[in-house]
Amino acid sequence: MTMLASIALVLLVLSNIRLLGGSRLGTLIQTVAIQGVILAFLPLFAHPGGGLNYELLAMAAATGLIKGLVLPRMLTRAVRDVQVRREVEPIVGYSTSLLVGLAALAVSAYLGWKLSPAEPAVSPLLVPVAIFTVLVGLFLIMTRRKALTQVVGYLVFENGIYTFGVSLAYRQPLLVELSVLLDVFVGVFVMGIIVFHIQREFDHIDADKLSLLRDGESQEEHQ
């Protein structure tokens, strides 16, 4: 099981790297969907006893459904509605983002091993990868201009927290997990609507231009 969990975690790292280097929104959303599927399987592999129970299976199914299917669908629809294909001119370029990603991975590896949980983790990769995923999500939110990419970043961030939760999954009541999922669901839903409306009003979804909304400044500037 540890072997499978490790492979899943490595895939998670690779998907994060793809997110850092990707410019097409379609690619980003697809990658987040893949992350969702990986995360759905992770608790099954990570269960220390090896035995499966219904609670775990239900959680895996719910995770896969929401993270792997519903949320990406919503985002894809938003992309279609607002007609934005790619992230043009991110604040930090793609090559630099990749390098930052490598540094973040080294940092999270270091922190992850220092943090070594009291109980033996399922895989030594689990905590580092969780921290890395959180950092990548935050980095995406910070350095991308389009609101939709930022939503993707938010999802990645949440995936990281979820991964972190997996290390304790067999202890944690199912309820907490599900409520987290619900939170994200509602969050993305609201953001999707807002993004759509912003786009309809202002013809663009550049988040850094939202500061123009202050105090009746001109919104004449179109992209």
Partner: peptide, 9 residues
């Protein structure tokens, strides 16, 4: 850079 990062991973 992606190849380096992959090797780093």
């Amino acid at each position: 850079v992606a190849a380096s990062v992959l090797a780093g991973v």
